[in-house]
Design a protein around this nucleic acid. Structure first.
Lengths: 139, 139
DNA sequence: GTTACTGCAAAGCTTTTGCATCCCT
DNA sequence: AGGGATGCAAAAGCTTTGCAGTAAC
């Protein structure tokens, strides 16, 4: 984990991102994270290392990463924004009961007929599947 | 439009929804509306008829309709919730530039391989296509 | 030395809530 | 008449912003 971040330092330098300790902690927390964390999740996690951390720093860093194309903002949760460090396009399963969000690893062939495109030039897509997860069903 | 609402009055009665003038105005505004309005859009529109209307009434009515299954809440816009009176499952095109949201009329065969289901019992899905709309491309 | 980031507090938006009053059924 | 809806104002969340001080480059 730490090694992976270390290897990426030159990538962030190249992007023109100034690497402060706070940012490194955020990057380390996000690296490989599959939990689709909210800003608060990130704040709480990183604050254990940097008790002086402020929410503004979290939001500003997330905004920077987003603009550099290194972080996806998910509009999936009606209550708050969630973030996903996996920037290659993928899809999600959402549990209607516990609201858990799980990545779908498989490729999904989704296509839209030309006549349904309404004049759009389509550049990407995102599929959400709704249902009930294993744990919730067991109850 | 008014006729369609009139025909539906017994439906709402049957749902146990008390039909106040404010609610009728909201229902009329929503009926057949393809603009995916926000609570504020609805408030502004209905306020022209009922200047005394309050935001709380809009939100409470939307919540009621949602719970009766007569309105969908869209989690598509990161800035605010939007509502869709078309309750039969459908998909959306979203313009990256002007943020317009357009309904897709066609059926889309979307399926997920069993091995990708992560133990979920899948009950529905929603596809978002991203791109650039005709108007934005013309500039 | 510059430039850009941090931290704090305040402000901005959207959405929810409590409560007295009102009105649909 | 009774139960639910309305309107107002206040509060609650989440996110953004301004600014002075500070640290990375």
């Amino acid at each position: 984990m730490k090694i992976s971040i270390a290897n990426n330092i030159k990538k962030y330098r190249a992007l023109g991102i100034k690497l402060t300790p706070q940012r490194l902690a955020i990057l380390e927390y996000l690296d490989g994270n599959k939990n689709h964390p909210s800003a608060e999740n990130i704040y709480e996690a990183v604050r254990r290392k940097f008790p002086m951390m402020s929410f503004a720093t979290v939001y500003k860093t997330l905004e920077t990463l987003k603009q550099k194309g290194d972080l996806l903002e998910l509009t999936i949760d009606p209550l708050r924004r969630r973030y996903d460090p996996s920037t290659k396009s993928h899809h999600h399963l959402i549990c209607n009961t516990c609201k858990k969000i799980v990545d779908i690893e498989a490729e999904l062939p989704v296509s839209i007929p030309d006549k349904a495109k309404e004049g759009f030039e389509v550049t990407g897509n995102h599929v959400e599947f709704y249902g009930i997860c294993n744990e919730c069903r067991s109850r």
